[in-house]
Nucleic acid binder design. Structure first.
Lengths: 150, 150
DNA sequence: AAGATACTTCAACAATGGTTCAGGTTCGCT
DNA sequence: AGCGAACCTGAACCATTGTTGAAGTATCTT
C-alpha cells in the first residue's frame, strides 16, 4: 500500500470500510439524496472525502432515532458549491443538538408524569396526565374519550 | 342512552372510541398478543374494561419509541387469572419508567458528546467521540475504520 | 493482457406498525 | 321480522430502512 490513499476519491467499498456502513446502505443513502457521488467513465461511484463526515452525521442522527427524511433536511443546509468547513458542520450540529435537547425534555416530562402516575396508582384513564395528555375528558358518561391527543 | 354502559364489556368500536385508537390497530394488537378478548356466539370481540388500561399503557410506551415486542414482554408481567389491580399496574409502570430513565441518560450522554464536538469543530471522524464511540481507530493509514461500533 | 476483486442495476424480500378494502355476518332497535 | 350500523376475515397496500441475490461490467495488479 502506497501513500496514494491520500486525497483520492473513495469507492463505495472504501467508504463502507472506513465508515462501517455497508455499501448497500450507502447506495440507499445516495438514492435518497443524503450523499452524492460522481461517476467514472465505467459508471462506478466516486465519493469525495467529506462524504465520510456526512455519513458520520447520518449515523449519529440515526442512533437517536431521527428519521432519514429529517437528516436530509438538515444536510441540505450545508453549502453545495464547496466542501463544508468546520463552521458549516458546527452550524448543522448545533441545530441538531437543539433537536436532541427537545427530545430529552419531552422524555423527561413523560417520565415525571409517569412517576406521578405510579404514585397515584394510575393509568386510570380518566385522571392520568399520561394517558390523557390533552386533558380532554368526555362528558357523556365516565371515562375518557381519548387516550392520546391529536 | 341508558346507564347500561356500566360494567358491560366493550365492543371493538367502544374501545376505539374510548381510547382514540382505531379498531384496525386494536385488532392488530390482539393479533400480536398485546390484548385479549372473548368472542360472542356470533364471533364478535368483547373486551373487559381493564383492556382500556392496557391500551393506554401501550400507547404511552409507543409515544416514547418502545417497540410493541417490548411492550408485550412487560404486559406479560401482569397476572393472567385476575383483573390487574393498582399494585400490578404500579409495578409494570415502574419497570417501564426505569427503561425511560435509561433512554434519557443515553440521549444526554450523546448530546454532551455532541456539544463537545461542536466545540472542537468536530465530526472529524478520526477524533470524534460521537462518530467513533467505541474508540476503535484504524492503524493502517489515517482515518477511522468504523464510525459506529457493533 | 489476464484474472481477481470490486463494482453496477434491478427486483425481491424483511421487520415494524399499521390502514384500507371487499365480501360477508351479526347486533340491537323498532 | 326487518333494517341499518357495526362487526368479521383475509389480502393487499403504505412508509421506513435497509439486505440479498442474480446477472453483468469495471478496475487494478501483476
Amino acid at each position: 500500500m502506497t501513500v496514494s490513499w491520500q486525497a483520492r476519491e473513495l469507492t463505495v467499498g472504501d467508504l463502507a470500510d472506513r465508515s462501517g456502513v455497508p455499501s448497500s446502505a450507502l447506495r440507499f443513502y445516495e438514492r435518497q439524496g443524503l450523499i452524492r457521488s460522481r461517476r467514472t467513465s465505467g459508471n462506478q461511484r466516486r465519493f469525495t472525502r467529506d462524504t465520510l463526515r456526512r455519513v458520520a452525521f447520518i449515523r449519529v442522527a440515526q442512533r437517536v432515532g431521527i428519521p432519514l427524511s429529517r437528516v436530509k433536511e438538515v444536510l441540505a443546509l450545508l453549502p453545495e458549491e464547496r466542501t463544508p468547513n468546520r463552521e458549516d458542520w458546527a452550524r448543522v450540529s448545533a441545530w441538531w443538538r437543539d433537536d436532541l435537547t427537545d427530545r430529552i425534555e419531552h422524555l423527561q416530562r413523560l417520565r415525571d408524569d409517569l412517576t406521578e402516575c405510579i404514585g397515584c396508582g394510575c393509568l386510570s384513564i380518566d385522571r392520568c396526565a399520561l394517558a390523557n395528555p390533552c386533558d380532554t375528558l368526555g362528558d357523556e358518561g365516565p371515562g375518557a374519550r381519548r387516550l392520546l391527543g391529536p
